[in-house]
């Protein structure tokens, strides 16, 4: 893994450095092995992109790190600053500083965005944010993401368009200030303007020094959110890692050279 010029985006000197380390992770779903030995290390200030074909296990990796009950870790470790997070509940992992931006955010009827955000921030920060500061913080972040203030009063993800859901996810990331953020296909379903706005939102959070793991199919988003590293995910593991130039190669050539699962089209 070679660091390239984009690694000049180093964290603020004052920001403590955090590391998420995935060691030889094996995960099964309903008895079917999906992840087959994933190794990855993401530190504060770094942005890692993961690219790979449909069904290769990218979301499985993201969900497993977050602790989704459907995924069973059969072996391996996930460490945040050296501490095993696999033994923690989903909420404890979030409070420890992990954030998962979901490919398919869930609707929660009857729970308003503002209530949800405040409850989450209170849990993650360990105390309820002061009301006045909080109102300013939320409205500021919503302005940044070009979100209509009316969203605060709507029910979580209920009736949100695809793009609105993504903005709402990034809004949460901005407010919860994780140590390490995993973004699963933030770019999917976004129009060009939304992609720019959402990327800018992500970049603002990145600038605070968060370590970012970005799952994507397209280099489009990588033009806005420049990765320090690109990893190729194939059949449940990382099969190649490189700098951002790797993304362009993948987009041109596809994943054919990594295995028979995706035979090269003649």
């Amino acid at each position: 893994m070679a660091t390239d010029s984009s690694a000049t985006e180093t964290p603020y000197p004052s920001t403590p450095s955090h590391t998420l380390e995935v060691r030889d992770l094996h995960v099964a779903v309903d008895g079917t092995p999906i992840l087959k030995g994933v190794n990855l290390k993401v530190s504060s200030g770094q942005t890692h992109a993961i690219m790979g074909p449909n069904g290769s296990g990218k979301s499985t990796l993201a969900y497993s790190i977050a602790g989704h009950p459907k995924y069973t870790v059969t072996s391996g470790e996930v460490l945040l600053d050296g501490v095993d997070v696999l033994g923690l509940t989903v909420d404890a992992r979030a409070r420890a500083g992990l954030f998962l931006e979901m490919q398919y955010p869930v609707e929660v009827p009857g729970v308003s965005v503002s209530n949800f955000l405040r409850t989450a921030a209170t849990a993650v920060r360990g105390e309820a944010p002061k009301l006045r500061d909080w109102a300013r913080e939320v409205s500021g972040a919503m302005v940044d993401l070009e979100m209509d203030p009316a969203f605060a009063g709507r029910n979580v993800n209920e009736g949100f368009s695809g793009g609105e859901k993504k903005r709402h996810e990034i809004l949460q990331m901005a407010l919860l200030r994780p140590k390490i953020a995993i973004l699963d296909e933030t770019d999917s379903g976004l129009d060009v303007d939304a992609l720019r706005v959402v990327s800018a939102g992500v970049n603002q959070v990145r600038a605070t020094g968060v370590g970012t793991l970005l799952i994507t199919h397209y280099t489009r988003i990588l033009r806005y959110i420049e990765p320090d590293f690109v990893h190729v995910f194939f059949d449940g593991r990382i099969v190649e890692s490189g700098g951002k130039e790797l993304a362009t190669i993948l987009e041109d050539e596809g994943y054919a050279r990594f295995g028979s699962a995706e035979p090269a089209s003649v």
């Binding site: 977050a66 602790g67 989704h68 009950p69 509940t89 989903v90 909420d91 992992r93 979030a94 409070r95 998962l100 979901m102 955010p105 869930v106 609707e107 929660v108 729970v111 209530n115 949800f116 409850t119 989450a120 849990a123 993650v124 949460q172 919860l176």
Partner: peptide, 19 residues
């Protein structure tokens, strides 16, 4: 729903109540 709320740091008991 429970997973989503918990993944934002909200403890299970509180997440259930919210839902």
């Amino acid at each position: 729903q429970l997973f989503y709320l918990q993944s934002r740091g909200i403890p299970e008991v509180e997440a259930r109540k919210l839902v």
